[in-house]
Design a protein around this nucleic acid. Structure first.
Lengths: 207, 207
DNA sequence: ATTATTTTAGGACAAATGTACTAAAAATAA
DNA sequence: TTATTTTTAGTACATTTGTCCTAAAATAAT
């Protein structure tokens, strides 16, 4: 990719993350990159194009997460959510303005919607395997694991927001806290055998 | 309260909910109410004042939820989250722009932050009672119930957003779906006795 | 009835923003 | 070297927005 285009994306991401998407005008970006607005618009005709480009960067990174191999089933399942949050962190502006962005950009909205459906299928397949391996218990309620997935999805998408509505900045430290929030939500569904494995993975977490 | 002031708040709430806070200018509100912008500003000096007024309306309604008495401990615990979501629904604009609003308005941010802390204490007290009554099991992990509270808080605050980033409108029907999401997240922490009660409360939910 | 106060309307302003347009400069191809 | 294409800068414009200000109208107080 063109060097200027690259620089624009990097700087935009930084500015969006730090000050919020609505605070960043094209002039601000151009100034920070050290180019003219005219030039900026040569590379990205519409402001929305920058956001779209960043979105698809994010999606690409997210996709790669699901291909990290591991022989330890439970461990890799627990790790995925942490990986997701870490990647989201790099693009947190997007999650902080998730509603605003999808409200304005039908393309992103549709794409995300499809993505989310695919993720759900993948996750449920993974859980089915975990049940087969006697690591997750059987469902006791209807769609119990679909519910679990939905909850994890919401928390992954919005924990940044939930931090920021109270705190004044987004520290990387809180990733640990929030990935624990998700791990703990999985714990009750584990079989006794898997609970032992869990305790080995998070030894400090036992009461 | 002054009649005009009342009308402004009602209309603003409606407009904010339907079109998103950022799409609604003072002119739009004035037009819809049928008054001049000058008059609008006589009643609310700053745009922010309207939002603040609506926020404190919401808080007042939320407070009343926690005083609904019930003799059935588990039932009332499960009902609270549904009540919260129903009330949030009336003010959904607020949750959809939670980050933007708190980013701009330190007063609301501080107030919400304190509120959230108080709610956590209340919730944990309630759970302690439920444990004493043999309805919830003991904690197996450190801060397990604090985590549970946090998750429920995030889901309550952001499920609107999570619906809207995929769907095009916010239907009242989905309240049922999302309150179930929360109930189900509580289920694994119940004692066998309480699980029976749960199944009686949601008979269709059994696998 | 008059005076004072509250409420309303309407216009004006300054600032910000996305975008369109033109022309110069730089890089590349012929 | 010349011609062509790509990249850059700078300006201008239309629109929107929150807020301010003044004066008229309506209401309340005396």
């Amino acid at each position: 990719m063109n060097a200027t285009k690259q620089k624009i994306l990097i700087k935009s991401l930084e500015l969006f993350n730090n000050r919020g998407i609505s605070k960043i005008s094209l002039r601000t970006i151009a100034d920070e990159v050290g180019i003219s607005v005219g030039n900026l618009q040569y590379h990205f005709k519409k402001r929305e194009d920058i956001i779209e480009a960043l979105y698809f960067q994010l999606v690409e990174k997210m996709d790669s997460i699901f291909f990290i191999p591991s022989d330890d089933l439970l461990k890799s399942f627990l790790n995925i959510s942490k990986e997701i949050i870490t990647t989201f962190f790099e693009y947190n502006f997007f999650l902080l303005d998730f509603v605003t962005i999808t409200r304005k950009n039908q393309k992103i909205k549709n794409h995300y919607s499809e993505l989310s459906k695919r993720r759900e299928v993948e996750a449920l397949k993974m859980i089915a395997i975990l049940i087969n391996n006697n690591l997750f218990r059987e469902e006791l309620l209807k769609n119990e694991y679909r519910s679990l997935f939905k909850r994890i999805e919401i928390i992954s998408n919005f924990w940044f927001s939930s931090v920021l509505i109270q705190a004044n900045d987004l520290s990387k430290d809180s990733i640990q806290e929030y990935s624990l929030l998700i791990s703990q939500s999985i714990f009750p569904y584990l079989t006794d055998e898997a609970k032992n494995q869990y305790v080995n993975l998070f030894p400090t977490e036992l009461v």
